[in-house]
Design a binder for these strands. Sequence first.
DNA 1: CGAATGATTTGCGTTAGCGCAAATCAGTCT
DNA 2: AGACTGATTTGCGCTAACGCAAATCATTCG
Lengths: 232, 232
Amino acid sequence: MDTEARAAVLKRSAFFHGLNAAIVDKIAAAALERLLKPNETLFQQGDPSTHHYIVAWGRLRLDQTTPDGKNIVLRFMGPGDLVGSVAVFRSIPYPATPTAVEETRVFQWTSDRMNELMSEYPVLAAKAMAMMGGRIGELQERLQQISTQQVERRIAAAILRIVAQSGRKTDVGVEIPFPLSRQDLAEMTGTTLHTVSRTLSAWIDEGVLEGKRSSHLVVLKPHRLMQIAEQA
Amino acid sequence: MDTEARAAVLKRSAFFHGLNAAIVDKIAAAALERLLKPNETLFQQGDPSTHHYIVAWGRLRLDQTTPDGKNIVLRFMGPGDLVGSVAVFRSIPYPATPTAVEETRVFQWTSDRMNELMSEYPVLAAKAMAMMGGRIGELQERLQQISTQQVERRIAAAILRIVAQSGRKTDVGVEIPFPLSRQDLAEMTGTTLHTVSRTLSAWIDEGVLEGKRSSHLVVLKPHRLMQIAEQA
DNA sequence: CGAATGATTTGCGTTAGCGCAAATCAGTCT
DNA sequence: AGACTGATTTGCGCTAACGCAAATCATTCG
């Protein structure tokens, strides 16, 4: 990918959106690239945090492993999302592992390089704060859901969240454009593979979802899912 | 409180720690104060976010009410903690309500005033990011706990987190220096009042805790609590 | 002081969802 | 095509934790 193509991608990201074009070109020029095949990891939880990344295209799943060997899915990241920055800002090791769920291209900058850019263009700091604030809001929402709602509602909410972030409209409904296993959903909602499977089966019977085994999930009746997610 | 006293408080806070003394004096001079009696709220969830606050002394409980009327405790805030800033940065209404659990004094700055200060002293932006990053880390940790651990472990972890943030050493153990009800603990850990009560009763029997009804909780055997929190 | 209010404790029946196990299925590899 | 691998489905029993209800206790207020 040449600098120009990189700049075009960056201009579309929330993080660099609205910046002067010349600045974005310069930032794009400073980036290195990396291409991940499905199941490749960008870095490992526990590694020293050295780089900021931004997803150009593709999709990453951000996993956190607990001390006792369990796994939770913190989020999925798509084009324009920043990866690793929070850890770099805090000067702590990366707290989670990003794994490609499909072929994914990322750009990267060293911590130092990004610091230079941020002091040169202070608006970047504001963007970074907006990004972190959004992350806080999302985490608080999930904490609230998992604390107060039962499993079925949480699964519905998780699917809707993914749809809102990455859904692709088709003629029959909204498609989740990357492979999403029952296990993934279980680890996003704090439940088990089995319960997710049962719940999705019921929804498929009801005609709310469609999901031939390995193909991508399609939400046929988003409205019905929202109803489930909000039912008192 | 005069400017000098305010500056002394600020210098001890994580947010302003390490700044040039003259700068802190100036910031202190720009602050207004507010004094809250127990159970008074600083603002309401849903109010437009207009001010940044910092706790001078006392203690706030940050509550979030869900659309269906349930309540969760996001955190307790003590001296030096920033309140409201994340919402102000994001230009969204305050997402939660801070309530004083004891007499509490806060300083406040308008959004505009703080923006001026932050552009004048860029190091403040870095401090704000560190604060937000810490919040993200804490939320991820709680999400992970509530997703994977059973209730007893979560309650132990919640008590230990409070002890780490606000514990006061006494000759018999560590005291939590503000009133903390079973209900509060339930809303912090995503369980019920009843389960918390049963669990604490068992611990009191075991000699791990001490907590005459209305008096403050004292952890007699922190080590034992840690053991419970970490048991596989 | 005695009543009233609110928090806490505790017993008990219920159940959502877990965990195990086995069967099934889809896609891949040879 | 046939064997293999990993994901998914489904049945079944179990239990952690909930939810209700009643009793107890502490504190405040008249």
